[in-house]
Design a protein around this nucleic acid. Structure first.
Length: 348
DNA sequence: AAGACGGGGTC
DNA sequence: GACCCAGTCTT
């Protein structure tokens, strides 16, 4: 232990938290089940994602892929389609692979042990702890951003959460207050962190732990957690050619080695013969967490059926139309562009 | 150990 | 505009 708190007893804090959770747990669709499949999916969906943002995606996903077998046997592009707009698309690709792992390596039965859950693609220490504790009475704290925030405030601990040892450090801190019912404890920490112990302007007046919170008693909640890591924005100069005719347009699929893994996009270059058909250029500025994207979209309106057919037949592009574009997963800025085009197209 | 990876909400 | 969020994977 890297602190001197071990000699004191903080278990009453966890018990207080459980009593609060009994009365104040959020009513969420995955709260009334211990089905490891559903808990697993919800843990992946809500990684780095707020409940309000991902709730519809979760419900639609469960409705379409109701069990591991259904998910494992579905095409990857359809899984990506149900992930459309959620971001971090490798989660969808990994969730699909993990479903096949469960079918192939565990005979279709979700493995109950923490160490086995951890072997699933896209499942790290947090998710493995959450699923094993909620579904199988596992005893690992599910240390996430909420744990960092709540624990650093309770103990007024300035350990840098950007430090790579933060996970282990706050895991040990969690053990100090962790009661027997770890599944409810983990979920209670999530609810407290999201509803009360918020990143900014926490509702300390309503917090069941305010009398146990050192940061609150020092009036220094805004100083925790300590995080030094900085985000840097880089600019990508993307240029797309929106090549279309009669409501059809050309698309291709991205690789899985960069942003927007395996999502569909417009061609990044066109042949010389299409240059005369460029009608206009639109610049879109799109912000990601770590990148600013300035995207130029060349509107290439092909009014010659001969050239259109010749071009589309001799290249590796796919053709889709404004209606069928709904069946593909596009990056958000391109999705918006197609939506606008669709709106304009209705006037013709 | 450090970057990369989305999108949306908040202040 | 900076920061944050039910983190994980790659290098």
């Amino acid at each position: 232990m890297e602190n001197n708190k071990k000699t004191s007893d903080f278990l009453h804090i966890g018990n207080k938290l459980l009593m609060w959770y009994d009365k104040n747990a959020r009513d969420l669709p995955f709260r009334n089940t211990k089905d490891p499949y559903k808990i697993w999916i919800c843990e992946i969906v809500f990684q780095q994602t707020r409940i309000a943002q991902g709730l519809n995606h979760y419900n639609n996903f469960i409705k379409r892929f109701s069990d591991v077998k259904t998910l494992a046997e579905s095409p990857e592009d359809e899984v990506l389609l149900y992930w459309k707009g959620l971001g971090y698309y490798s989660r969808a690709i990994n969730i699909h692979k993990a479903a096949q792992q469960i079918i192939n390596d565990y005979d279709g039965v979700f493995p109950p042990e923490y160490e086995e859950i951890l072997k699933l693609k896209g499942v790290g220490k947090y998710t493995a702890a959450a699923v094993s504790s909620i579904c199988f009475n596992g005893k690992m704290p599910a240390v996430d951003g909420n744990f960092y925030r709540v624990l650093s405030r309770i103990f007024a601990d300035d350990f840098d959460v950007s430090n790579s040892r933060a996970f282990n450090y706050f895991s040990e801190l969690a053990h100090l207050i962790m009661p027997e019912n770890v599944g409810d404890f983990n979920q209670a920490m999530m609810d407290l962190g999201s509803e009360i112990c918020k990143p900014r302007n926490p509702l300390c007046g309503e917090c069941p732990l305010n009398r146990d919170c050192l940061a609150f008693s020092l009036n220094k909640t805004s100083e925790f957690p300590v995080k030094t890591k900085k985000v840097k924005a880089t600019d990508l100069g993307l240029q797309y050619y929106f090549v279309h005719r009669n409501g059809e347009f050309l698309i291709q699929q991205r690789k899985d080695d960069f942003i927007w893994k395996k999502l569909f996009e417009f061609p990044l270059q066109i042949s010389e013969e299409l240059m005369p058909f460029i009608k206009s250029v639109k610049t879109i500025n799109h912000k990601l967490t770590h990148k600013n994207l300035s995207i130029e979209i060349f509107n290439v309106e092909v009014d010659s059926e001969e050239i259109w057919k010749n071009f589309t037949a001799t290249n590796d592009y796919m053709i889709t139309d404004v209606k069928n574009s709904q069946e593909k997963s596009f990056p958000k800025p391109l999705e918006n562009y197609i939506q606008n085009y669709q709106t304009a197209y209705r006037f013709f």
